[in-house]
Design a protein around this nucleic acid. Structure first.
Lengths: 226, 226
DNA sequence: AGCGATAGTTAGAAGCTCTAACCTCAGTAT
DNA sequence: ATACTGAGGTTAGAGCTTCTAACTATCGCT
C-alpha cells in the first residue's frame, strides 16, 4: 500500500476533497446540480468560501469530478450486474434492473450525467471513455445473444441502420460486435433511458400507473426481439 | 377583433410581455433555461432590471410562461402532423418526425419541458393538461391502429402491463383506447423521447453515427409492432 | 383639466462565484 | 534543532444575480 500513505499533506488534501464532494452530493441530491453552491458547502464544513478554491479551481471543476464519479459508479454497477447472469438474456435483464435502481436511488445523479447539460459546462474526454465502457457491456451481451436469439426480421429501416452502422462504428472502439448487435445495444440504451429519464424527471407522477411494469415490458421485448 | 384592441394599457402590456418572452427565448436557446437572467433581458431591452417585475412576478413565473408556450407549440405541431396522414401508421410516423424536428430546431426548448426540472420550480397544472392533449393524439392513432395491425404476441410482461393499465388509466382522461393501445402509446412516447433526448443533450456527438437512422428504425418498429 | 393607476426609476439587501492580499503553521531540508 | 518554504486558511471586495422598497413621471380616463 504505497499508494494510500503518500505524504501527510496529500493525505489531508485528498480527505478534504472527499469531504467537499460528499457535501456536494447531498446538495445535488436535494436541489440538483444547477443549484450547487460552493459557499453553502463551505458553510456546512465550517470554513470560509474561498478556502474551497484551494481544492477545486472552480464550480465546474467540482461538477466535473462529480460527473466522473457518477459515470464510474454507474459503470461498475452495470458491470457487476452483468456478471451476475449466466445467459446473455439474464445479463441484459440484470443490467436493466441495475440501471433503473441506480437512477431511482439518486434521481439527480442520473440527471447529472444524462439530463440537461449544465450551461457553460463541457464534459471531459474521460467521461466519454467511461460511457463507452458501459456501452461495451451491452455490446458483449448482444454479440453473445446474436447466437441465442435470431433477432427477428426487424424491417427495412433497421436494415438500413445496420448497413450504416457497419461503417460507422468508431464509437464501439474496436468491439467485434456484428452490425445488428450494435443496433440492438444502441436501441437498448435509448429505450431504457427513455423510460428512466421520464420517470426520474417526474413526468409519470400523477399518471397513476406503475413505471416498473412499463419498464419491465420494455426490457423484455427489447432483450429478446429488438 | 374585439379581443386585440382591449385597452391601450393592456395592449401595451401584452406587447412588452411578448418582447420580454422573445428575449427570454433567445437566451434559453443560447445558454439554456437555468442560466436565464432577468437582468440581462432588461439590459437588452434598454430598461432597468426591476422594471421587469411589473410583468412577471419572478423568474419562475417567466419560466412557467415559457414552459406553457413550449407545450402548446409542441402540441399544435404534433396535432398538425397527425392531421397530415391518412392511415394511423402514416399519422404516427408524421408525429414522430414532427417531434424530432421540433426538438432539433431548438434543443433547449425541448429540454425545458422534458429535461432536468429546474430546482425550485414546479410545473403548473395547465402543463399536465397540455401534455395529456399530446398523449391523446397518440391514443387516437393507436386505437385506430389496433384494427390495422394485430399488435403481435408482445410477451408476458406486456400482458401484465396491459392488465395493469386496464385499471390504471386516469391519465388517459376518459379516452376509450383499449389497454394495448394505452401501452403502445406510452411505449411510443418513451422510445421517441429516449432517442431525441439523448440526441439534443449531445450524447451522440462524437459517436459518429447518424441519429436520424436510429430514430427511423425505432419509429418503424414501434409503429407497426410495438 | 385634473385625478389615479401604472410603468418606470434608483437604492439596497442578500446571495452567488471568484480574485487578491495577507497570515499562520506544518513539513521539510539543512 | 532550527530556519525556510509553501500549503491552507483568512478577510476584503469586485461584479454578478434576484428581488423589495420607495419614489417619480406619465398615460388614459372621467
Amino acid at each position: 500500500m504505497d499508494e494510500a500513505a503518500r505524504s501527510p499533506r496529500e493525505r489531508y488534501r485528498a480527505q478534504v476533497r472527499d469531504e467537499i464532494k460528499a457535501h456536494a452530493w447531498t446538495q445535488v441530491a436535494s436541489t440538483g446540480a444547477s443549484a450547487l453552491s460552493l459557499n453553502a458547502i463551505a458553510r456546512q464544513m465550517g470554513i470560509s468560501g474561498p478556502a474551497l478554491y484551494r481544492y477545486f479551481r472552480n464550480r465546474d471543476d467540482l461538477i466535473t469530478d462529480l460527473v466522473l464519479d457518477a459515470y464510474r459508479d454507474l459503470s461498475e454497477t452495470c458491470r457487476a450486474a452483468a456478471a451476475s447472469g449466466h445467459t446473455a438474456t439474464a445479463r441484459l435483464t440484470a443490467v436493466a434492473a441495475a440501471l433503473r435502481g441506480w437512477a431511482l436511488a439518486a434521481p439527480h445523479r442520473y440527471l447529472l450525467i444524462y439530463g440537461t447539460p449544465v450551461p457553460g459546462y463541457a464534459a471531459p474526454p474521460e467521461a466519454t471513455t467511461v460511457a463507452a465502457s458501459i456501452m461495451s457491456i451491452l455490446l458483449d451481451a448482444f454479440t453473445e445473444a446474436a447466437g441465442e436469439n435470431p433477432s427477428g426480421p426487424a424491417g427495412e429501416p433497421a436494415a438500413v441502420l445496420d448497413r450504416h452502422l457497419a461503417t460507422h462504428r468508431q464509437w464501439a472502439d474496436g468491439h467485434p460486435a456484428p452490425p445488428a448487435a450494435l443496433r440492438r445495444a444502441l436501441t437498448f440504451w435509448t429505450r431504457l433511458h427513455g423510460v428512466v429519464s421520464l420517470e426520474v424527471a417526474g413526468h409519470f407522477t400523477g399518471m397513476s400507473f406503475d413505471p416498473a411494469l412499463l419498464y419491465a415490458a420494455e426490457v423484455h421485448t427489447t432483450v429478446d426481439t429488438a
